[in-house]
Design a binder for these strands. Structure first.
Lengths: 135, 135
DNA sequence: TAGTGCAGTCTCTAACTGAGACCAATCCTC
DNA sequence: GAGGATTGGTCTCAGTTAGAGACTGCACTA
């Protein structure tokens, strides 16, 4: 059996045991780190601890509202820690936990895939749009 | 330099060159396959080609609307193909392309991470909620 | 004859997201 | 000492998006 078949089999097993939310760890975790901003924030924090507004600047088009919300959820999931320094103006530092760092590896694999396959995907999109336009 | 530092550096490089949408392949691709349903559909199709409603049954709580939409976008990105058999009632088969199959590997890594770390994440959530409740 | 499955589309409503105002306190500039 | 900026948020309001469910047309089945 090829590595490919093995992979398919494992994925099939996961899908067979039910992908319904709650019960399934795959869903449960992917819904979280698979959203629009979480991955980006984790990547930004890979370089080291950063303060609230530094993260905001690093992820250009995130709103304060979404930044706060996403950071809270990542903190809740134990992927990062929040440390408040009682200075004035306040200073809050976010840094990855060991768990958060452990997420970087698979995420980097995905990002690498994205980078490598980006041209193919762009080409496919162009093809698709051209033939849709023709119709 | 450790593998960890190397990783951080690479991720930092990506974030440094600007994560703003459009330009950045990371954003561009991650926004796509990182949404709620795409990953799940790809996983379901890993086992082999499936018809529209078979996919719907495999991903329990997806609506027809979202299923159609997500399949269209995955087709547009060249990750899967759609083949219509002109029978009555109509039969439509979706199957992964080579590009789609190539995405399974990094995704499987992420899914494995999710599976392995799920207990830790659950524990972190419980801790967080308990201390939030106390306050 | 009513019901079921097929692959969708359409509409309406509920949920979520994003933009931007606002907060108190402190520092810097003029 | 007035005005502006920075700090890490919260709040509200509009706009976008997702989900639930009805509807389609045709064939098969009970």
């Amino acid at each position: 059996m090829s590595a490919d078949e093995l992979l398919s089999e494992r994925l099939a097993a996961w899908s067979a045991m039910g992908l319904d939310a709650e019960r399934c760890p795959v869903r449960n975790v992917l819904d979280r780190i698979g959203d629009k901003w979480s991955t980006l924030i984790l990547i930004v924090l890979a370089a080291g601890p950063k303060r609230f507004s530094a993260i905001g600047r690093a992820v250009p088009d995130i709103s304060k509202r979404m930044l706060t919300q996403t950071l809270r959820e990542l903190e809740r999931d134990g992927l990062l820690t929040r440390r408040v320094f009682p200075t004035k103006p306040p200073s809050v530092e976010y840094s990855l936990t060991a768990l958060g760092r452990s997420a970087l590896e698979p995420m980097a694999a995905l990002v690498q895939w994205a980078e490598r396959r980006h041209p193919e995907i762009e080409a496919a999109r162009a093809r698709f749009d051209r033939s849709a336009e023709a119709a």
